[in-house]
């Protein structure tokens, strides 16, 4: 029997993470399947970023495990951080860097990087020093860099947290484009309106526990748990 040519679904079983004796996440069970974006929401300190890092493999769980359907999972996923970490090089060199690491043949790198920059509208700035870009441009470059890898699964950790509305719109557009191309998006946000605009399903985290994993239309109109209901109404949960 041949292994399927996909890493999805990604399955977390009994996932927990503790640091310094303090449990940050406990007993998270979830399945990330191909399809529309999964938005992880929840109040500050719920453990959203930690969950993302556990799923991406940047943190090792203290309990439970993360499993993938297929081989080569590490190469089929990438991540964009809240504050983009750009190399002190040109825009183009930033886009090329992960391609070289991933072992993409050298002849393919430049066209792929350029296509990714075009997709985010930065092709004209290819020779600029990346660190001189505006905040929004930097985040778009980070998205292009991740997208150039053609990941099957893309994690986004609050990508718009420090952006103005125009830049936020641009980023959402890119996310929508990627999702439409079939890239599975898993994204954290604290912005409910944004979650509504992008989500296919919602994962609601509260105090380190996953309380809901619900299709978006259902979650926003009829959440299952009282906590989610309170969160949607804007009530303080703590």
């Amino acid at each position: 029997m041949r292994a399927p040519d996909t890493m999805l679904p990604l399955i977390a079983e009994g996932l927990g993470f503790a640091a310094g004796g303090q449990a940050i996440l406990s007993d998270v069970n979830l399945t990330i399947a191909a399809g529309r974006p999964s938005m992880i929401i929840g109040p500050n300190g719920a453990g959203k970023s930690v969950l993302l890092r556990l799923l991406h493999g940047l943190l090792a769980p203290t309990q439970g495990r993360v499993a993938h359907a297929g081989p080569d999972a590490a190469r089929r996923q990438s991540m964009v951080f809240q504050r983009p970490v750009l190399l002190r090089r040109s825009v183009m060199a930033n886009a090329l860097y992960p391609l070289r690491l991933a072992g993409v043949p050298s002849a393919e790198r430049e066209p792929r990087a350029r296509a990714a920059l075009e997709m985010v509208g930065l092709a004209d700035l290819a020779d600029r020093p990346a660190r001189r870009l505006s905040g929004g441009e930097q985040q778009r470059l980070a998205l292009a860099r991740a997208a150039a890898l053609n990941p099957e699964l893309l994690f986004l950790d609050e990508p718009c947290a420090s952006l103005d509305p125009a830049a936020t719109r641009a980023v959402e557009q890119i996310v929508a484009t990627l999702a439409a191309r079939g890239t599975k998006i898993v994204m954290t946000t604290h912005d409910l309106a944004q979650a509504k605009r992008l989500a296919g399903e919602v994962l609601f985290l509260h105090r380190g526990r996953l309380l809901e994993q619900t299709p978006a239309d259902q979650f926003f109109f009829a959440p299952t748990t009282a906590e989610a209901d309170a969160f949607l109404r804007g009530d303080l949960l703590w």
């Binding site: 991406h56 940047l58 991540m79 951080f81 970490v85 992960p98 690491l101």
Partner: peptide
């Protein structure tokens, strides 16, 4: 850089020239 480089799959040794 550490987190970003690890996300790209670069180990510590590969980080040295970068």
């Amino acid at each position: 850089y550490a987190e970003q480089l690890r996300s790209f799959g670069a180990g510590r040794l590969r980080a040295v020239p970068t």
